[in-house]
Computed example of a mutant assay.
Amino acid sequence: MKHFIIMTIFTALFGSNTTQSDNVKILSSSDFKTQITNKNVQLIDVRTPDEFNSGHIKDAKNIDFFSGQFNEEFNKLDKTQAVYIYCRSGSRSRQSSNKLLAMGFTEIYDLKRGILNYN
């Protein structure tokens, strides 16, 4: 019982990954490449325009995480279709995934450790 109470407190304080793991899948570089190659997917790079212009995954659309237009741009996408998302190292895409869940997106794939791990 004592362990249950401790786990409950930690879950309340630090959150649970249950919702995220159900709707957000973290993909390895090879799985991410396999799933987006030669397919028409919603592929989104959430880095800044300068980062995007310095190199990005083919056919990716840039929606800057820090932009005031973030929600507006994502609202233009189909929430019922899968979204493949990445950033530089995985932090912004993880935060973006949580925002997308709150906006009603139902299937999100996040590139583990970002584009630094992709090439």
Results as ranks from 00 to 15, higher is better:
87 C>D: 11
111 L>F: 07
69 Q>V: 00
26 I>D: 08
36 I>C: 07
52 F>T: 00
89 S>L: 05
69 Q>A: 14
81 Q>I: 04
44 I>D: 00
74 F>M: 01
87 C>L: 09
74 F>S: 00
12 A>E: 01
95 Q>R: 14
115 I>E: 01
40 N>T: 11
56 H>W: 02
1 M>F: 12
110 D>S: 12
57 I>P: 01
72 E>D: 15
92 R>L: 06
31 D>A: 15
108 I>K: 09
36 I>F: 10
112 K>W: 03
86 Y>I: 02
119 N>F: 13
59 D>L: 03
94 R>F: 13
110 D>R: 09
38 N>M: 06
63 I>L: 04
12 A>P: 00
74 F>E: 00
102 A>T: 02
116 L>R: 10
75 N>A: 11
56 H>R: 13
25 K>M: 09
54 S>A: 13
27 L>T: 07
18 T>M: 13
74 F>C: 00
65 F>C: 03
30 S>D: 15
13 L>V: 06
97 S>A: 15
27 L>Y: 07
80 T>Q: 11
19 T>W: 10
20 Q>Y: 12
35 Q>K: 14
4 F>H: 14
44 I>V: 12
78 D>G: 02
55 G>C: 04
86 Y>E: 06
1 M>N: 12
64 D>L: 08
108 I>D: 07
78 D>S: 09
10 F>D: 10
74 F>W: 02
61 K>F: 01
71 N>G: 06
23 N>V: 08
73 E>K: 00
64 D>K: 10
4 F>V: 13
47 R>F: 04
72 E>S: 11
8 T>D: 05
8 T>M: 08
30 S>W: 08
12 A>G: 07
32 F>V: 08
88 R>A: 15
35 Q>A: 15
92 R>W: 03
26 I>L: 12
79 K>G: 02
57 I>D: 00
103 M>H: 06
117 N>R: 02
82 A>G: 11
78 D>M: 02
59 D>N: 13
59 D>S: 13
51 E>H: 06
50 D>V: 12
102 A>H: 03
91 S>P: 03
111 L>C: 07
44 I>N: 01
53 N>Y: 07
32 F>H: 05
84 Y>E: 09
71 N>I: 06
58 K>E: 03
3 H>R: 14
19 T>E: 14
80 T>K: 13
119 N>R: 14
79 K>M: 04
104 G>Y: 09
24 V>A: 12
116 L>D: 13
53 N>I: 02
87 C>E: 03
47 R>K: 05
33 K>Y: 13
114 G>N: 05
68 G>S: 14
45 D>C: 05
27 L>R: 10
14 F>K: 00
49 P>D: 01
18 T>D: 14
47 R>I: 04
34 T>L: 15
85 I>L: 06
48 T>V: 07
4 F>I: 13
114 G>A: 08
6 I>D: 07
71 N>D: 15
71 N>F: 03
7 M>P: 01
11 T>V: 08
92 R>H: 08
